[in-house]
Design a protein around this nucleic acid. Structure first.
Length: 627
RNA sequence: GCCGACGUAGCUCAAACGGCAGAGCAACCGCCUUGUAAGUGGUAGGUUACGGGUUCGAUUCCCGUCGUCGGCUCCA
């Protein structure tokens, strides 16, 4: 069933037309899709199919565990789930049995029959189902939906019956279980989930499954899942020797190995150059600051849960910084500012530390220490629209340079616990919205998704296999300038309060790198590749010549290395392929005689022999074009 | 943090029911001198995450700690 009184968030988060892909990894898209798309998915055959398969699964689970208490079971992107309170943990064997039972049920060709009931009937029907009773009570009162989200009006209560299973459910469903192809669904995993998503509530067992209209689509879905696994940055990070983390150092803390660090340096150099060209000033700030700083900034009031315990220094409390902003504000404040020097843009690769609960850590994507490509803009109120426009455009420029082409923006509005007046929020939100409208970007509103000090525009990108990732964040802030009493002297000779924008384009070096790895599947474009070319001499007698070639490439700024192991050429090529090195330069008797190199690309293409100069020209062009 | 699964050599994985811990790859030492994804022989490599317990005996069973994975909740 489901729940279905109000759309489950997951179900509407990312429906896709055509090839749908599950979002693996912990990138949660807490966003509502545009109304029309939402309706499309919810009205689609696939949605009904998934919802109905969830019912079939619940029936199979109840067959196996008659004492099971059922919670909710919505269709979600790429599949469905159902939550249960069960007498014991589900095992993979159970999953298999349940799946088999589902196949039998489906073949029984049972109709899904809808009935409208009143609250009393519903309560009687589900008298042994405490979760359902709770839902009925809330729905009857017209207060909250199955996820605990407030609802506007009392919905009509309906139930759906199929075979022996009856569920409180809004529907819709397919007409008959015969519409579910027994070969096009699969149960995937079991996971814990809190009743109504609240960690104060009971932990239930959630079974995830996927279902498609045809077995071919299921197969394709599973294939894409496999493809995503191959791109997993944690796996590639190991294979390509990019980074690691280590028990003894601490969880969520990243070691960048030489290969990864090389890429980070290239990213940072590029970032520095672009910022320099675009009117930023660079600053550097410390990693800790006194408690009073964080009191002033509001972090100890609003962000304490994410901050580490204080360090005692000479009887004073210092905190490891979770953000860079207070330091940048103090640089602004270090002297009197004139309107003539605004806008000011302070940029810093600032390393911050945030407490993250152990269960949420994930490779490079969620860590406890990370470096933000941070900057703070200070400007006059009149300059604000231009500053936001500038930031958005600059942001797109940077992201495009790293090969992302598909963007979506999210406007995060005032959260529950926020500082600042409603009128300020409204004004700032309007300014951001206006800028988004001017940008032509596809965007939607994420209600309550702002930072505690102001609304924000987040940018998400779609990667090479269609997954969305959050990267950039641009946050308006009218609070910190006030808290730190920032001023500038205006044209009128009077003191005025500047506006401020926080922004991170790549977000964090760690997360951005993780996403880049997955986007490219480890085959970085030439400008980023830690090793761009490897010389592969065929026999020992070619070593000296190969060494010369490598030296010449290095002199031209190309990152080249020599594979002088006593292996056969085939083995060297294989290893270079596995390392995803863009260019392989095979060097044998023919090349030595003609003074050439034989180029092979990691794509398997084999352009063949060419002069070193010709190769250098090609490599330089690829590097310049960032391909 | 919570629910569940898991932790064996640098990596990927084996080792009914408790009975001396094994393979491939990588590494190292040789031989081969090679034409577009693995030539070949040998050597070395482990307090089975850590700490307790049960047992004549624990990789195996029990408890705890740490960590990893899949989710929940939360986020750059």
């Amino acid at each position: 069933m489901q729940s279905n009184w109000v759309e489950p968030r997951e179900a509407i988060s990312r429906p896709r037309l055509g090839r749908v892909f599950v979002l693996m990894h912990k990138v949660h898209l807490e966003v509502q899709m545009a109304e029309k798309i939402k309706e499309k998915y919810e009205e689609s055959k696939l949605y009904r199919l998934r919802h109905s398969t969830a019912h079939v699964m619940a029936e199979a689970v109840l067959d196996k565990f008659p004492e099971a208490k059922i919670a909710i079971g919505p269709a979600i992107e790429d599949g469905f789930y159902y939550d249960f309170d069960l007498p014991r943990p589900i095992t993979p064997e159970d999953l298999k049995e349940i799946e088999q039972r589902m196949q039998e049920i489906v073949k029984g060709k049972f109709d899904f029959k809808r009935e409208v009931v009143d609250a009393e009937q519903a309560k009687e029907l589900f008298k042994d189902q405490p979760f359902k009773l709770e839902l009925i009570r809330d729905l009857e009162a017209g207060t909250t939906d199955e996820h605990g989200n407030p609802i506007r009006e009392k919905p009509e209560l309906s139930i759906y019956k199929s075979d022996t299973f009856v569920d409180l459910c809004r529907g819709p469903h397919v007409e008959n279980t015969a519409e579910i192809n027994p070969k096009s669904f699969k149960l995937l995993t079991v996971a814990g989930a809190y009743w109504r998503g609240d960690e104060k509530n009971a932990m239930l067992q959630r079974i995830y499954g996927t279902v498609w209209e045809t077995p071919e689509e299921l197969k394709e879905y599973l294939r894409v899942m496999e493809e995503a696994k191959k791109r997993d940055h944690r796996k590639l990070g190991k294979e390509l020797d990019l980074f690691s983390s280590n028990d003894e150092i601490g969880t969520g803390l990243i070691l960048w190995h030489p290969n990864g660090a090389k890429i980070r340096k290239i990213m940072t150099d590029f970032w520095n150059d672009e910022h320099e060209k675009s009117g930023y000033d660079f600053v550097f700030t410390p990693h800790i600051g006194k408690a009073s700083l964080w009191e002033t900034s509001g972090h100890l009031g609003f962000y304490k849960d994410n901050m580490y315990s204080p360090i005692d220094i000479d009887g004073q409390q210092y905190f490891l910084k979770p953000m860079n902003c207070p330091f940048h504000l103090h640089i602004y404040k270090s002297r009197i500012r004139s309107y003539r020097e605004l806008p000011l843009r302070f940029a810093e690769m600032g390393t911050v530390y945030r407490y993250e609960r152990s269960g949420v850590l994930h490779g490079l994507l969620r860590v406890r220490g990370f470096t933000q490509d941070d900057a703070h803009h200070f400007c006059t109120p009149e300059q604000m629209p231009d500053e936001i426009d500038f930031v958005l455009n600059f942001c797109l420029h940077i992201l495009r340079s790293f090969g992302f082409t598909d963007f979506k923006a999210y406007l995060g509005t005032k959260p529950h616990d926020a500082i600042g007046e409603d009128s300020q929020w409204a004004e700032a939100e309007a300014a951001l919205r206006a800028s988004l409208d001017r940008s032509g970007l596809d965007y939607e509103t994420d209600a309550g998704g702002g930072a505690f000090y102001g609304p924000k525009i987040d940018l998400k990108v779609k990667d090479a296999i269609g997954r969305e990732w959050q990267l950039s964040t641009n946050q308006f802030d009218f609070n910190l300038p006030e808290r730190f009493d920032l001023t500038y002297i205006g044209e009128d000779g009077q003191q005025h309060r500047p506006y401020m924008v926080h922004r991170a384009l790549m977000g964090s070096m760690e997360r951005f790198f993780g996403i880049l790895i997955e986007h490219y599947g480890g085959a970085f474009p030439v400008w980023l590749a830690p090793i761009q070319a490897v010389a592969i001499p065929i026999a020992d007698r070619h070593f000296d010549y190969a060494k010369q070639m490598v030296a010449q490439l290095k002199a031209q700024g190309i990152r080249a290395s020599l594979d002088d192991r006593g292996e056969r050429m085939n083995a060297k090529i294989r290893d270079a392929q596995k390392q995803k090195i863009p260019y392989m330069l095979v060097i044998g008797d023919q090349e030595m005689e003609s003074g050439q190199v034989a180029l092979r690309l990691r794509s398997g293409e084999n352009p063949g022999p060419m002069s070193l100069d010709a190769f250098i020209a090609k490599a330089k062009q690829d590097i310049a074009e960032k391909i």
